[in-house]
Design a protein around this nucleic acid. Sequence first.
DNA 1: AAACTACCTATCCGATCGGATAGGTGGATA
DNA 2: TATCCACCTATCCGATCGGATAGGTAGTTT
Lengths: 204, 204
Amino acid sequence: MRILVADDHDLLRDTLVMFLNNEGSIETSAVGTFSQAVERIEADAPYDLILLDYNMPGMNGLDGLKAAMAMGDGQRVALISGEATKKVAESALEAGAAGFIPKSLPAKSLVNAVKFMAMGEQYAPIDFMTTAEEVETHPLAKKLTEREQQVLKGLTEGKSNKEIARDLDIQEPTVKLHMKTLYRKLEASNRTQAALIAREAGLF
Amino acid sequence: MRILVADDHDLLRDTLVMFLNNEGSIETSAVGTFSQAVERIEADAPYDLILLDYNMPGMNGLDGLKAAMAMGDGQRVALISGEATKKVAESALEAGAAGFIPKSLPAKSLVNAVKFMAMGEQYAPIDFMTTAEEVETHPLAKKLTEREQQVLKGLTEGKSNKEIARDLDIQEPTVKLHMKTLYRKLEASNRTQAALIAREAGLF
DNA sequence: AAACTACCTATCCGATCGGATAGGTGGATA
DNA sequence: TATCCACCTATCCGATCGGATAGGTAGTTT
């Protein structure tokens, strides 16, 4: 079973390789950047499984994942990340990733997950996918109505009231109304503050 | 030599413990949250060295580091982190941390660093501290004059032109001038976008 | 039925913003 | 000296924003 690990954290990379190689049946290669991973895939494909760090030079979000999957027809690729949100994990799995591995996973589970994925299954830790669901709706966001969230989303994209109104297919005065309520709820005194607070809180 | 590792990433924690215990002379304990670390320290102090993950439930930035150091008079504590900036590392070392370990460190170097710190030395990887220095002045920031940076700082605090003018002791029209140049340089079309871009770029 | 909530529209008005334009100073450079 | 650059001030004007006020609809709860 041939596995390729791409992660810029030397420490974690060394560990993964060691753990996996210890399994006997697994032969593991490792690189530290996305471009190195690409080279390696072009030279040595196909691997039974490729593990890509979500935060890694060259990855550029899910683009790297998709690029890697496109190589060597139907290459099985899984994401590994310490910081990624549930949203990212879901998008990755939807895009056809072989799995998603948070770094908060015990080493033993990781080895099992890798074997599981290498056998063609799709893996994601249920606890991560479910517990993250709760945090999904941010404490601040829970106080906002659906419309307000839509308006706030537009705001965090730097749009004007008029643009937001057009996008949501409502009138501009209505947007201003929501905006006013947002300022109150977010304790902001103008749109810039509101946008910053929303970003700070990790919304959108 | 007794070491305590506190990291919420099971994978990395398992690895660290294994690597360190393999050294023979090191006895390692591990926990997954800051509060657990506190309990362990209270029960088993003093350790020769404590490794705290900077991003970990309960840490609250450098507060956790300081709290841990305050326990058991002069407890030696080092930070370990995969995401922290050079700024954080510097602050930690200034606050008296035993060291700073980025997760991008090879496993072998880590073991050496741990031994080094346990012997009473202060450790930080030079390459991390220096290369980060270059990025210190952000590519974007380099294109801004001093005044523009001051104005931008005010903007990222959600201030109005009038407030910024008062703070910098200049006239409001002048602030507007700088604002206009900022939009051009940051490729923003309004103040909110400019503020978001500045934040995104990690300025201020 | 009454009260409440989320949502929508509208108008008025003062404040603020964003752009254009037209200056001026001081310091560094060619 | 002439030229550039960073910085400052000023005025005009249309667009946008932020707040207040006054409605309306639909669905839910009491």
